[in-house]
Amino acid sequence: MQQALDVVVNSFLAAGLYATMAYGLAVIYGVMRIINLAHAGIMMLGAYTTFTLFTHFSIDPFLSIVVVVPLFFAGGVALYRTVVRRLPRSGSTPSMESLLLLFGVWLVLQNLAYVLWSGDTQSILTSYTLKSVSLLGVRVGVPSLGVFGMSALSLLVLEFVLHRTYLGKAIRAVTQNRDAALLSGVDADRISAVAFGVGTAFAGLAGTLLSTLFAFTPDFGRSFLLKAFCIIVLGGLESVTGVAAGAFVLALLENVTAAYTAVPTSLQDALSFTLLVVTLVVLPQGLPGLSRLAHVRRRG
């Protein structure tokens, strides 16, 4: 019983971390059909910004979110206005140009970080970094709880914005059908800029949260990016709730495999990619596709 509780609690915590990494990627893909390959670089920059605020101004990593999120939102909008909007549109599939461009941006960010912070491994040690609390009899790291809380809050804010505000409705309209949204008077270019800013802000936020758990270098984020791709495919590419659900499914799969099977944990990445392939073949619309299927069956 205790082992089952361990698995569930740890899966929720890992899901919080994974979802935070994937929200930004999903928002940008949903609105613009762009796979933001610079996502890992932006997370890395978020971690370094938090590190700088912590070391130079003694700002707690979780408090630094109030600086990081607006800063990265502005950076994202600027990146969109100066570079991304110039990309040729290619309908519903990501263009090769966008992949190459954003990969280039990632390399620039990496090299910028080498210049600004050198290649040394950096980390943030706070008074609570090594502390843990007992949750349902499971020892849980305080930073992991904080990351989970921020992830849940991000989900609520995103859901609220997307479903209760005009901006959210416009974002959803562009996500569903860009041309129809344009015909309805939605300024799709402005919405794309905002979406890119939101996606970048979430990547920065993810970097801040990751910096409370991990040490980092300018190469930071690469392994997280691959996991985030799996999650957004599983979550249905455009749905924020789907991303959270996808993150939980992946985390649960990893924890159950580790606890109840003899499969080596070094195969965790292989497990993620197997899940990605199976999802693409069996359920190309991800988890939201499953609920739609169930809905159709109930009606018919």
Binding site: L17, S223, N255
Partner: peptide
């Protein structure tokens, strides 16, 4: 056991 470099979650392994 082995693990991949820069693994995002060591809890399952440490379990």
């Amino acid at each position: 056991e082995s693990f991949e470099l820069y693994a995002p979650d060591f809890k399952p392994l440490l379990g």
